[in-house]
Amino acid sequence: MFPHSTEHARPAPRTGHARRAFVLLTALVVALACMALPAGAASASTVTFTAEAATHVGQNIFVVGSVPQLGAWNPAEAVALSPADYPRWRAAVTLPGGTAVQYKYIKKDSTGAVSWESSPNRTFTTPAAGTVTRSDVWAQGASGQVAASFNVEAATAFGQSVFVVGDLPELGGWDPARALRLSSGDYPVWRGALLLPPDTAVAFKYVKKNSDGSVIWESGPDRTFTTPPTGTASRNDSWR
């Protein structure tokens, strides 16, 4: 005998129910997407703030500005910058796209005291999207000092570091043990910054220190310059 056919037992596709379920599911997904991304949502951009600033022990650098993301000029809500590449301080902040922004850098010490840089408000407009970097140097503070940056291109052996030393107390008074250590973050360019008195003649040299503490002085006469009455000073040199 031949087996009975079972084709009649297969249920017919319920296309109407499936179609309605698909439509309902699609509508739900669209509704959830609209809730997550409301129409007219503002674009955003990532801004990296970079400030070259010398600090004393216990001081940190912050950026504060006109938009809520920068604290709306409230130092207590300012954004802390990282000193990982000292004397360059950095922080990345997400800001609204296409927005005019005013900002300044401030210093806070361990007691919470705030020092504002003395320049006019810094200004820029964020791009509609993407990233942008603000590269700045701390402007003269209320102390009346000048922010001086030292940059020297110098090749070093393993274990060596580069320092700047000079005739002023801030530069160690020619004592290599109290010289300012420079950062190798942009090797072979070594960088450092500190505050110096205004309108002052400065004599200095770069030195290399080995891991055993021995010191190598660069050759040639002392380097010299005079700090300006206000603002900043920058030295760009090569080891000799």
Rank of each mutant, 00 (worst) to 15 (best):
R19Q: 14
E7K: 06
F22E: 12
H4N: 11
A27H: 01
R14K: 03
L28A: 14
A31W: 09
A33N: 10
P13N: 07
A9K: 13
R14N: 06
A21Y: 01
E7G: 05
A9E: 13
G16D: 15
T15S: 11
V23Y: 04
R10V: 14
L28C: 12
H8R: 03
H17A: 12
A18R: 05
R14L: 02
C34H: 03
A27W: 01
A27F: 10
P13C: 02
H17G: 00
L32S: 06
P11V: 11
T15Q: 03
A33Q: 08
L24D: 09
C34P: 00
M35W: 03
A21D: 07
T6L: 04
T26I: 08
V29Y: 04
A12W: 13
A12K: 14
G16T: 14
H17M: 05
A33R: 03
H8C: 04
P11R: 04
R20S: 15
F22R: 05
P11L: 05
R14S: 03
R19C: 08
A21K: 09
H4I: 11
T15A: 13
T6H: 10
R10H: 06
H4M: 11
V30C: 06
A27I: 12
P13Q: 07
E7C: 02
P13F: 08
P13A: 15
M35H: 02
H8P: 00
L25V: 15
L32K: 01
V23M: 05
L32A: 13
A31V: 15
P11Q: 11
P11D: 01
T15N: 09
R14W: 00
R20A: 15
R14M: 05
L25W: 05
V30W: 00
